[in-house]
Design a protein around this nucleic acid. Structure first.
Lengths: 241, 241
DNA sequence: ACAAAAGTGTTGCTAATACACCCATGT
DNA sequence: ACATGGGTGTATTAGCAACACTTTTGT
């Protein structure tokens, strides 16, 4: 196998995680110490990226990055955009970083996002940290914009594809599903109406199981059936233009 | 300006055009004569592509390709996917082509599509030709799949963004709008219900003008107002999961 | 006057919204 | 027994689907 990398193409992964209190992004610490160890010149956060491997597909490169960070081997991966050339290196900090890492200034990045419940990822180093999408830290490069683009993309996809279920564990309650929509779309929904709607979807199948242990009334669990979903071909008919 | 090109990155443009009789794609003839001029070894069609310029953004590269073919300088450009490495060179023909053009075998392509009324493009050479999406010719590389991906993408975008209007001239009739939906989505719509729905959209503004000359009853013209559209923020509220 | 496309209304049904209380459990 | 989140029903309104005929023009 060829482990060389392309020097002008990188793959970036935005890792979204849904917690019970909202939507999170997993970021990587970026530090550069030049003169003294305790006085970093650069000290901020970035989305995780890597140069693409010559002999891997882009998807494989993205999966590799994702897996090395989260220890997960299920990939809810969506490629949403490719950013080209120039325009992303605007600050001295970013230039310094790029040069100190032997990277080319001119480069291109294929951006993916991954979607899952926040708690299913296992972080092993404190180099990575979850941040609420509502209070992002100081970010390198144009990564703030990229995260924003990814968020906008997932909002649109949710309207049209069953991405929401990737944010949830295999078994989930209807309230968890509602909260997922509310967190990702940043809206509020009426609980009664939401349930009525959800219960009509035949691909949200009720399980003979409840979720206990919240010190409350136990709640019914449901699972998403992709098979059933795929068979429900209608969908198309409605034009919202 | 730096006119060098990246040898491992290309930009591909799928050019969609809407005719009165359906959706078309503009393709480029690919021929390679090896031994005799009248017996080409390769003789098929491809979507138009080019290696990306080092000093241009990807969007500029795409625009350049588009303009050189269609003579249009309005760009309804949508980047929909990036295809990476391997997997696209499966046939001897494609390998032969790549080698005879001094290209690298390992490469990556950023794919865009452009959307407009078919008749607004002016073709100057017979190297380019429109093909109905329903009867595509023999295509090189994996371009059949790429066209398909683009078509699927535009179908989804149409549901959620006002892309349909890019297929039409500035002034259009409601029946043209209906036919546009029918052609792109490959569905049939009820004329009365469609009009009722369209007339409710305040961003479809009636003009004090009619379209004559079909030897029929003249029809009222409308225009799409992007300003008004952008101000109508609701949209979000409806979840179709 | 006729051909050809433009344009128009009503009804039944389904889905969306708005809204407030009881239920089952753990402590 | 009480606190907590889970779960339910109804009335009103809005939008979708199905359906066939009249209007305006050019020739």
């Amino acid at each position: 196998m060829d482990f060389r990398k392309l020097d002008n193409v990188s793959v970036n992964c935005i890792i979204f995680g849904l917690g019970s209190d909202g939507l999170y992004v997993l970021l990587q610490k970026r530090t550069l110490n030049m003169f003294r160890d305790d006085f970093p010149i650069i000290d901020d956060w970035i989305i995780t990226g890597e140069r693409a491997f010559i002999s891997k597909t882009l998807e494989e490169s993205a999966n590799t990055i994702f897996k090395s960070i989260t220890n997960l081997s299920e990939f809810n991966r969506i490629q949403f955009r490719t950013y080209g050339n120039s325009s992303s290196l605007k600050t001295d900090k970013d230039l310094l970083w790029v040069k100190s890492h032997g990277l080319k200034v001119q480069s291109m990045t294929i951006a993916y996002y991954f979607v899952q419940p926040k708690k299913s990822a296992t972080l092993t180093t404190d180099q990575f940290k979850w941040f609420s999408i509502k209070s992002l830290p100081d970010l390198g490069f144009d990564h703030y914009d990229i995260i924003n683009d990814a968020h906008e993309d997932v909002k649109k996809k949710i309207m049209v594809e069953p991405v929401i279920f990737d944010f949830l564990p295999y078994k989930f309650t209807l309230n968890e599903l509602q909260i997922a929509f509310e967190a990702v779309l940043n809206i509020e929904l009426d609980n009664r109406n939401f349930r009525k709607k959800a219960l009509k979807k035949i691909y949200i199948v009720p399980l003979n199981e409840t979720k206990k242990g919240n010190a409350k009334k136990p709640s019914k669990l449901y699972a998403f059936s992709r098979d059933v979903y795929d068979k429900v071909t209608e969908k198309e008919s409605m034009i919202n233009f």
